[in-house]
């Protein structure tokens, strides 16, 4: 039971990731597939941020441990815990995953836009964004292109 509590976030990450994977595999619609990829990507972000969380920690914006906010945070924690894991008397969450994910989110929307732009161009060329119908259109085109026997 305690395993569920300590690993709950990771289980949710896997569920969200598999939801994204399922959409990408099962849906033939290109736009829906891009949404699935976005879901998959967001689950990765959730994983990184879950990893960087430190219990009892605060956002990685340096505080004065003697100030009002620093005192209020320290009052909630065991002094020995703060001494071991704190930096100058304040426990922070890990900033490194935040940096990685912050830029990844903006890059993610830019690449999502590229994928959607490709879908728009596919629609203009084939008249559809369903992969089955695209296959059918290219098959017909290929048959027409073949010289008659």
């Amino acid at each position: 039971m305690s395993w569920i509590a300590t690993h709950f976030n990771y289980v949710v990450v896997v569920i969200l990731m598999m939801a994204g994977l399922f959409i990408v595999f099962s849906s033939g619609n290109l736009i829906k597939r891009m949404i699935g990829l976005a879901l998959f990507q967001s689950s990765t972000a959730l994983f990184y941020i879950s990893f960087g969380k430190v219990s009892g920690g605060t956002a990685a914006i340096t505080l004065d441990a003697q100030g009002a906010e620093g005192q209020a945070l320290a009052a909630q924690l065991d002094p020995a815990y703060v001494a071991q894991f704190g930096v100058e008397g304040v426990v922070y969450s890990n900033p490194l995953p935040h940096v990685l994910i912050l830029t990844a989110i903006v890059v993610g929307v830019a690449t999502l836009a590229v994928g959607l732009a490709i879908a728009v161009r596919v629609r203009e060329s084939y008249g559809t964004v369903e992969s089955d119908e695209i296959d059918a259109v290219s098959r017909v085109a290929a048959e027409q292109a073949e010289p008659a026997p």
Binding site: I49, K53, T58, Y92, S93, H98, I101
Partner: peptide, 10 residues
């Protein structure tokens, strides 16, 4: 999760 910068972006 103490990630205000990322929350902002998201």
């Amino acid at each position: 999760m103490d990630a205000p910068d990322v929350a902002f972006t998201e």
